[in-house]
Amino acid sequence: MSTIDLTLQIWRQKNSDSLGNFETYTLNGISTDMSFLEMLDVLNEQLTKEGKEPVAFDHDCREGICGQCGSVVNGVAHGPEKEVTLCQLHMRNFKTGDKLVIEPFRSRAFPIKRDLLVDRSAFDRIIQSGGYVSVNTGGVPDGNTIPIPSQVAELAMDAAACIGCGACVASCPNGAAMLFTSAKVSQLALLPQGDSERKKRALAMVETMDKEGFGNCTNHKACEAVCPKAISIRNIARLNREYAKAIFTEG
């Protein structure tokens, strides 16, 4: 195990109404086996002991699946390693003397609540507008009634792996939420269960997405590049098809 010394430049903002600014901290003797969030824990313990307010950041499962953590490290959402969330990024990716600039996910649709913590409830509202199959509990057919080819289930699973962290929006030069929205639309469009509502779903979810203040997709692929779950922009292509089909034929 080796240790490194770092300079951190972290965005501090008291609440959504106040202006924020960068603060600089030095942190010595960081074990390279630490995760990025553990490094922030160490910083916060240090700040607490100095009587300063710790840095607020979102996190929960710390195993890369809940999607609650996420910040932009040196310009890249979830940091320099591919296909990991911030909690799975380890300090061995950095070396002594590195300066890390840590910023919250920035997007018009994600207001900053404090420091690195943002409000991503717009994602919830996109799902609420149609990201589900409308079945009530009970009264459903046996699980094996509809055969679903293994490849289709796998494709649906690829899309369903989205953890809703928001890195796609944070990285998109336009702040678009197409990758997130398309992942859910794709999952349910691929599976026969989602078929009866597919048009309504595509229209409603895109409408909500636009209303929530996300930008327009211009096919930059930045979302795909930072997605910790490697969700493909093929899903965006599928959403485009679904949307066009729906708008020209629905109603």
């Binding site: 310009g75 600039v101 018009r108 336009n174 203040g213 327009n216 211009t218 930059h220 590049a225």
Partner: peptide, 19 residues
């Protein structure tokens, strides 16, 4: 529209899409 959304972005700008 997109300029509106994405103004005041990050202090460090990097090319994420390496293509």
């Amino acid at each position: 529209q997109n300029r509106e959304v994405s103004k005041s972005r990050y202090a460090v700008e990097v090319d994420i899409v390496q293509e």
